[in-house]
């Protein structure tokens, strides 16, 4: 039996494989009409959120396609960030009475609460909405920022 070299680089990410399996299952159950949801495992209608930690700040990214600034409300408590919003259904045409062939999008209101990690300075928050992505930057408290300590030679 020949011994094959373990070629690590050609191996796909195992989680990709799981994702694909889930997509396959969703297809079997006929759930692919809603491709962005995770099918039978999760059918909630809340926008997807990313929370990242950077060296000097926390970053929150929310996908909000089709939502205007005036329909968004962002509020903050010491450790909780709350995002409320409303989206009216996408309707072209004059009266929106026409025949609907397919609708995978949702309409209505949503609310999303994100608990902020320790050290987020809620007094220093900025939020920006562009191209349907909301970007919230929350500064880190000074004591959590990496600090350079100078070494004194004697």
């Amino acid at each position: 039996m020949a011994i094959m070299r373990w070629n690590k680089t050609s191996l796909p990410d195992p989680f990709d494989e799981l994702d694909r399996l889930q997509e396959e299952m969703n297809r079997l159950f006929g759930l692919t009409f809603r491709p962005d949801s995770t099918g039978i495992f999760d059918r909630s209608e809340v926008p997807a959120v990313d929370l990242l930690e950077e060296a000097d700040k926390f970053l929150v990214l929310v996908d909000l396609p089709g939502i205007e600034k005036q329909n968004l409300e962002l509020s903050v408590a010491p450790h909780v960030l709350t995002l409320r919003g409303e989206r009216s259904g996408a309707k072209g045409g004059k009266n929106g009475k026409g025949h609907v062939y397919r609708n995978e999008t949702w309409e209505g209101s949503f609310q999303r609460t994100i608990s902020l990690p320790e050290g987020a300075d809620v007094d220093k928050i900025s939020a920006e909405l562009s191209d349907g992505v909301l970007r919230i930057e929350i500064a880190k408290k000074a004591e959590l920022k990496p600090r350079q300590i100078s070494v004194v030679a004697k």
């Binding site: 491709p35 309707k91 072209g92 045409g93 004059k94 009266n95 062939y101 397919r102």
Partner: peptide, 13 residues
């Protein structure tokens, strides 16, 4: 991506 398709007044949106 998710999409919505509807027809109205001789146009498809």
């Amino acid at each position: 991506p998710r999409c919505a398709i509807h027809e109205d007044e001789g146009k498809i949106f």
